Amino acid sequence: MSPARSQSVGQPPDTMAARVEACTPCHGNKGEGTSDVYFPRLAGKPAGYLYNQLLAFRGGRRKYPPMNYLLEFLPDSYLQEMADYFASQRPPLPQPVTSEASGDVLRRGEALVSGGDAAAQIPACASCHGPGLTGMEPGIPGLLGLRPSYVSAQLGAWRYGTRTAKAPDCMQRVAARLTEADVTAVAAYLATLPVSENAAPSPKGAYALPFSCGSAPN
């Protein structure tokens, strides 16, 4: 189905923007996010990534009852339309926060994000999410503008296997090597990063990934 649909005189517009208004209480108008620290921004993320997450919620691989229920009977084509819509939105990113974390914690976060930890076999976040941390088409999301609580929760979910992705599950592989202190450091540091007006994902193939990833096939 096309996002643009016919409408009768006097009826509200039947557009994808109108149809996804059910998403706005949690994810904000146009998917820009809300004040809730656990609901992520959807706007501007790669359509392939968003589509994969919608499939995961519909199929139960990601478990959150409201999302599982809302998506249960929606077909693949409609989930793709939803993903395409939110991927096309470009509201401004939220400004960075002033972190209460110590300097040592932020320095550890910067080291992991920018350079990884070779001794622990942890690649840099930037090696997968891009030099500017804006992600890459079609399936790698950007990391700018995310709140520390959300990042911590997602990394924790991967560490303990409550969030999974297509095999090979590269995020589970990385997160399993992080300590609790590492998770806190990465989340705190990412939230302090400045945002740019152009935070669009890099084109597919713009850089090589450090290993195979099922959610971002070559």
Rank of each mutant, 00 (worst) to 15 (best):
S2A: 12
S2Y: 10
S2I: 08
S6P: 00
Q7K: 13
Q7A: 12
S8R: 14
S8K: 07
V9G: 09
V9D: 06
P13V: 09
D14M: 01
M16S: 11
A17W: 11
A17S: 14
A18D: 14
A22G: 12
C23G: 05
C23T: 04
T24P: 00
T24E: 12
P25Q: 14
G28V: 03
N29K: 05
N29Y: 07
E32L: 05
T34L: 08
K45F: 15
Y51T: 03
Y51D: 08
Q53W: 04
R58Q: 15
R58H: 05
G59D: 14
G59C: 05
R62A: 10
P65E: 04
E72F: 14
P75H: 03
D76F: 03
S77H: 15
Q80Y: 06
M82F: 10
M82K: 05
A83H: 04
L93V: 11
P96R: 11
V97G: 00
V97F: 00
A101T: 07
A101L: 09
G103E: 15
D104G: 08
D104V: 06
D104W: 13
R108I: 00
G109V: 12
G109I: 00
G109T: 11
E110C: 12
E110Y: 14
V113F: 10
V113H: 13
A118T: 06
A118C: 01
A119C: 02
A120F: 09
Q121R: 15
P123F: 09
C125W: 07
A126Y: 01
A126G: 06
S127A: 13
C128S: 11
H129K: 02
H129C: 01
P131N: 12
G132Q: 12
M136L: 08
I140S: 02
P141N: 12
L143K: 09
L146N: 10
R147Y: 12
S149E: 14
V151N: 02
Q154P: 08
Q154H: 11
L155F: 05
T164L: 09
T164R: 07
A165D: 14
A165S: 15
D169Y: 07
D169K: 12
C170P: 05
M171K: 13
M171G: 03
M171A: 07
R173Q: 14
V174G: 03
R177L: 04
L178R: 01
T179D: 10
A181E: 08
V183C: 03
T184Y: 01
A187N: 06
A191T: 10
V195H: 13
S196W: 06
P201V: 02
S202E: 13
G205A: 06
A208G: 07
A216W: 05
P217I: 07
